[in-house]
Computed example of a mutant assay.
Amino acid sequence: MSASLVETVDIQAPVSVTWALWSDVTRWPSFLSHVRLVEPLDERRFAWQLSLPGADKNFVAELAEVIPEERIAWHTVEGVHHAGVVTFHHLSDTSSRVTLQIEYDPKGFVERLGALTNLDSALANYDLGEFQKLAETAASA
């Protein structure tokens, strides 16, 4: 059984800014609260370290699709099963919409509990809020 979540945030920053921040995977730990480290292995693969309540997880994810200023998709090739896509939508010259969609295999009690209580959704919401602050600060700089 796989679980999925979709979260969307509107940001007062142009797509060029939101894309530039998100496409630099080494910055993900600064706005994704459960991501401790993302380390490039080569052009397409990245080693992740996640810090979750009661469990630390490591996995290797591969970029499946990158369309500049439109979408970034990835899936794991080692470790915990997980796939995601982030899409960027132009709302106006000064605003954009970012949608995060993640599918994962809720193995183990902690993850199942999270999926059942919508903890994952709350976390994704919080992370997108952090990203929004980062992007809006960058856009106004």
Rank of each mutant, 00 (worst) to 15 (best):
L50K: 00
S23R: 15
H81V: 08
S30I: 10
L91E: 09
E7M: 02
A47H: 03
Q49D: 01
V38P: 01
N118I: 05
A64C: 14
A139F: 04
V38Q: 05
D10E: 13
E70G: 09
N118K: 14
A83W: 04
R71Q: 14
A135I: 10
G84I: 03
G114E: 03
L91K: 10
F88T: 00
T94M: 01
H75D: 03
D105I: 10
I11Q: 06
P106I: 10
H75Y: 06
E136I: 02
F109E: 06
A122R: 15
Y126E: 05
T26Y: 08
Y126K: 13
A83F: 00
E78W: 04
L113M: 13
A73I: 02
L41M: 04
I11V: 13
V9K: 10
E7H: 07
I102V: 14
L116R: 13
D93F: 05
L5G: 08
S16R: 14
V85K: 04
A61T: 07
L123K: 14
V60C: 09
E7F: 01
S140V: 03
W22L: 15
K57L: 14
A135W: 11
V66G: 13
K107A: 13
L113K: 10
G129E: 04
H34E: 11
R44T: 07
L116I: 11
Q12S: 08
L100Y: 13
R71N: 07
V85A: 02
A61D: 08
E136R: 04
F131I: 01
A61H: 08
V80N: 05
R44E: 11
L37R: 12
M1C: 03
I11S: 05
H90E: 12
F31V: 09
S140C: 02
V15S: 09
F46N: 06
W19G: 14
W28G: 09
P14F: 08
W28V: 14
V15T: 12
V15R: 12
G79A: 08
T99Y: 05
P106M: 09
N125I: 02
A138I: 07
L134K: 12
A61F: 04
E103M: 06
H82R: 06
L41G: 04
E7Y: 02
L123H: 11
V38R: 02
F46L: 01
